[in-house]
Nucleic acid binder design. Sequence first.
RNA 1: GGUUCCGUAGCUCAGCUGGAUAGAGCAUCAGAUUUCUAAUCUGACGGUCGCGCGUUCGAAUCGCGCCGGGAUCACCA
Length: 588
Amino acid sequence: MSLIQTIKEIAVQSVKIAFDHEVTSQDISVNDTKAEFEGEYTIVTFGLTKILRKKPEEIAEALGAEMKNNSLIADYNIIKGFLNLSISDASYLDYLKKSLHQDWNSIIPKQGKKIMVEFSSPNTNKPLHFGHLRNNFLGDAVSRIYEAAGYNVCKANLINDRGIHICKSMLAWQKFGEGATPESTGTKGDHLVGEYYVKFNNEYKKEIAILTEQGKTEKEAEREAPLFLEAQEMLRKWEAGDKEVVGLWETMNQWVYDGFDKTYESLGITFDRVYHESKTYLLGKAQVDAGLAKGVFFKKEDGSVWINLEADGLDEKLVLRADGTSVYITQDIGTAELKFEDEAMQRSVYVIGDEQNYHMKVLKLILEKLEKPYAPGVHHLSYGMVELPHGKMKSREGTAVDADDMIAEMLQIAQDNTEALGKVDGFTEAALSELYNTIGLGALKFYLLRVDPKKKMIFNPEESIDFQGFTGPFVQYTHARLSSILRKAGDIGTTMSETINADEKSLIYQLEKFATVIEQAAEEYNPSLICNYIFNLAKNMNSFLANNQILNADSDAEKNTRLYIAQHTKNTIAKGLNVLGISAPERM
RNA sequence: GGUUCCGUAGCUCAGCUGGAUAGAGCAUCAGAUUUCUAAUCUGACGGUCGCGCGUUCGAAUCGCGCCGGGAUCACCA
């Protein structure tokens, strides 16, 4: 049980003794004590005035006196209606000793529940850009956070490998590619295909311009441009199983997969299951038939199938075309069923940008109306777009910041900084390369994860990502410092101090909150809470190191106590970074 | 227009299930290195929490109305 929860329980019992009144722990409001007052936790008694029919000061006084009988509470003071509690040194030291047996793989014990996290979900017509990195890092981090929160996690990737946009790249390659391959051009496969996607759109724009000059409206021109018609024809051929088209599709997709594999590897991201839309897009039809029989869906005269969501404040939504072909949502209904057959999970998270909020709302509603057992567990982890100072990143216009370029640049900056600081001594070539990877990726991941997911964020490529202050390298650096001290210390003795100073208390106090933060981050699907937590912890630790000696402490007991704190802080930082998908270096 | 998200220091962001004098990082300025890693630490400067009204002991936080910005409202995915 967390310390804050324990305090609430004690308060509940104390209220019963002092006022002969039954309250629950939810009636007790406990906050962190403001820095300028004595104590660590504060009970706000205003909320109890109505229940107990007494003045705040009276409640605080009687409650404080009663709570002090518990050995956890060393002292209390009252300011207005605020009851500030000081926790006893012995309690903090007890916690510190217990923490040595912490299971760092799963901070919270396993509960036998399973969660699937779908993320990344790339299109196979272009390489990943900076915005996609936010998706990948979020999905990976949330997966790891749930793992630490006691869930069994299945990471899934649903590859969007069919549709008109894929045909666009294919068509442009056919027309302008002159047989270029990744090998012949020395280009990474996803980048090569992406070039033709941009090429298509450039040529397409030219055709539209010509048509509008001839007096067509914008919309007419878009629909009548020869390239667009050809792309549509290609999609029809693909759906019909045309050998040549399918062959080209397989070849070019493979180029992209090879490229993605390299990117995922450099990001340190893996998946437990990979789904392909080309294989799942037909699965939804059976679900639609079943829903039709149930009366959840209805058929229009032309044979198209719809659902009426007006009662839920939405419109009618198409779920199957008149010609029997599936739309986006049909595929999603099918995939949801397939996922559940595969994993029978309690929760299913979709990491998808906030431009699809409406779509995901519709999907969840449909699954609920179909009375799917997994419907309540569906959660859309909606995140804001990453924007450039000039506007959104668009692959088709070639304005996106490429993910591979960004990674390479971060590694380079990591190397430059390390060399400039003269910290390369004692490293082998391979260890240095690993270190640059650790620091560069750490900076990148932390940068994208430190902001609340639902907020859009602006990234200015002109300003490089920082390595100082609220950053990954700052936290990593603290870990390396602690590692260094602990290496020098060797085995830690068992005798410990009886009392602790304010700096020590502050650290233990903070360390105790880690499990609660993990829980909260999981509940809110929000890795930024971890970023904030470990940054503050690292800051506190650095400050501690500036004011306190560890290896040259006044006594063995004090030294041991501080080494335990250092060890626990190091472990906590390492685990905190780990759930963000960031490595913690032993030296840097 | 409907729905929805956002608006906090020069910049990037915390805080939002109501609590005490609103916090960090960057930037700027001033300091700290014979001592466990200075990618660090200490301090200063910096705010009508978009605006207004309401709810109440108490509002950055909750409600309503404005203003400003984004997303979405496809037989595209």
